[in-house]
Design a protein around this nucleic acid. Structure first.
Lengths: 337, 337
DNA sequence: GGGCGTCGAGAAAACGATTACAACGAGGGC
DNA sequence: GCCCTCGTTGTAATCGTTTTCTCGACGCCC
């Protein structure tokens, strides 16, 4: 690779001048032209590593998600990447597997790598520690999940209302014993969605004991949804519908239902979080659609502002969910009169 | 952040000694201990940017895929990331959208960023140009799709045989007019799969004209599959089964079938490339399972070898596909005798 | 015409690590 | 006892940029 000095020599100027040409310094038109020509001939493009070292700012941001194989986070990642590209930032992808230790190691890398900033879907609301980054002046944006300490910008969805609306929908459709497969304790999304479910159930007159009995916690993964659904089906007072707190667990729940020969919509199924194939499953699945792409895009925009040095006060952007009603919640079989 | 000199001062040694402690140089045990203690106290970890500049080698690799929202590439990305992590490399994610120009820009970034290497699922077999990177000594591994110029390592699947087996399966199940929704011309995966389909059809005695008439090209995306399926359904001699060359187009094809009230398995549907929900669609979809994760993992391993300076001759690793038979190809309705 | 402000360009000092080289001390062989 | 060798350590150069000075030239105003 040609260096800035090579270009300088070829154009008969100093390296400083070349740098100024590429960074918008004041250079006479004639010299700038000579530099540009020389750079083109030599195929020069500034070494970003050296630039980073000097400016103490990289053109790379980190994106920490639990698992990019989850369609929700894949879409979010896509939103981040598209937006970052427009700001000529590169995105380093990190899968944390919701493992706080793994997450911590990645955050250390972000520091050592002098990344321009980090977007993180925190593995744990209480145990994820972003204060080290913040203290060292690294811009951080929380996405999807709120971290406990509120010292960073955040982009989330309105989990609580989304879950409440969804649960109300199930009740309105005539289901009488609506169960809930919640996420793991300790993530804000899980807790908020559970809160929404509970709130709707209480409003409908269900007792706290019943609500508690009909709630299971999964791990936001297929297997967890499967196991939780089996437990729910084994209850003495078997539920007739389930609100599942994320897409992958809904997949597991559907499998469990199929194994037990229980079919929607006689048994109502509603997934919080869309699935690309939700309309193809028979019957098509009612879902709460999450603006996953926009979540990523907004987070990336917010981060870019911070990287550029915006001094705005911290903000939390909350995006809306949309209930997409399909056949899986059409209503229970009419009861014999 | 503490620098190496800070640590050196705190430990009462020279920066060189600190560096040696961290890079396996010869240092007396007593001093090494002092250095480690000082580093721990100061929370020091070597600045990777400075290290990269000095050693001319980064700890970041680029991963260029068409679209990480495609479950196939998401899984592949996951394989790359997991493997890279073990070698303490970070992965920069780049979505090319199969756009050669966008891909070229990303390759330029890889150079400017001095990345350790690049794994690329080439946007085009003929127009993707990796020679610039290779000429500058950057390790490159092609994944999933073979580039034309064979001067790089590659990890692919056995597309041709997989497609041939799949087509044979459809024929064996009694379908008589097996159509094909192929990918865009110009990618090796598309061409190899089409070749496999053709080969099986010819062996079954189908004429080249008929084969040609029953073939449509899509863009590897949902919409392309949808459009192609509609065209196929409108043929005067309507096919009774379709071999779809990738997962997303299969999704589109299924939608088109549903809109036309055509149901598998009376109409056979087989997807090349798995879908996480293939078993949930009714009827469950027969697929050719691709080792997407392993594809990524192998590519990352190969790249790490190269980064470490392995002088082995170039290699191409070909992974096997597995035909996963499900109900969508159970066979056509028995014909009236 | 002199002083002053402005603008452009170059020299050189960072940024924080690695590493070639030289220096130094100790130990062993003769 | 001297010299050679070997193993550790420190000094300083280096990677390729950006950026702060400094300097010179130029133009303008009084």
């Amino acid at each position: 690779m040609a260096t800035i000095s090579d270009v300088a020599r070829a154009a008969g100027v100093s390296p400083a001048t070349v740098s100024r040409v590429f960074n918008g310094g004041r250079v006479t038109a004639e010299r700038a032209e000579r530099v540009r020509k020389a750079a083109a001939v030599l195929g020069f493009s500034p070494n970003r590593v050296a630039r980073s070292l000097r400016t103490q700012r990289a053109s790379v941001i980190g994106l920490l998600v639990p698992d990019v194989e989850d369609p929700f986070f894949a879409s979010l990642a896509r939103g981040v990447e598209d937006t970052a590209l427009r700001g000529s930032l590169s995105v380093v992808l990190c899968n944390t597997d919701d493992d706080v230790e793994k997450e911590r190691r990645y955050l250390d890398v972000a520091l050592a790598e002098q990344m321009a900033g980090v977007i993180v879907a925190a593995a744990s609301r209480t145990r994820t520690d972003l204060s080290g980054l913040v203290a060292r002046g690294m811009p951080v944006v929380a996405v999807d999940r709120r971290p406990r300490a509120a010292e960073v910008d955040a982009v989330t969805v309105d989990d609580r209302h989304g879950a409440e609306d969804a649960t109300v929908h199930l009740l309105e459709r005539g289901y009488e014993r609506v169960a809930c497969i919640a996420g793991p304790a300790g993530t804000s999304t899980s807790e908020d969605r559970l809160a929404g479910y509970r709130s709707a159930m209480r409003d409908a007159g269900t007792s706290d004991e019943q609500i508690h009995d009909r709630t299971r916690h999964g791990d936001f993964r297929v297997e967890g949804g499967h196991a939780a659904m089996r437990e729910l089906l084994a209850l003495p007072e078997r539920p007739d519908a389930v609100f599942v707190a994320n897409n992958l667990m809904a997949l597991g729940a559907l499998q469990a239902l199929r194994e037990a020969d229980v079919e929607p919509p006689a048994f109502g199924v509603l997934s919080f979080g869309d699935l690309p194939w939700a309309s193809l499953v028979r019957p098509p699945l009612t879902t709460v659609q999450l603006p996953s792409y926009d979540l990523g895009a907004s987070a990336a925009e917010l981060l870019q502002d911070r990287v550029a040095g915006s001094g705005k006060p911290l903000q939390t952007v909350v995006l809306r969910t949309v209930l997409r009603v399909r056949d899986s919640t059409r209503g229970p079989a009419p009861r014999p009169a």
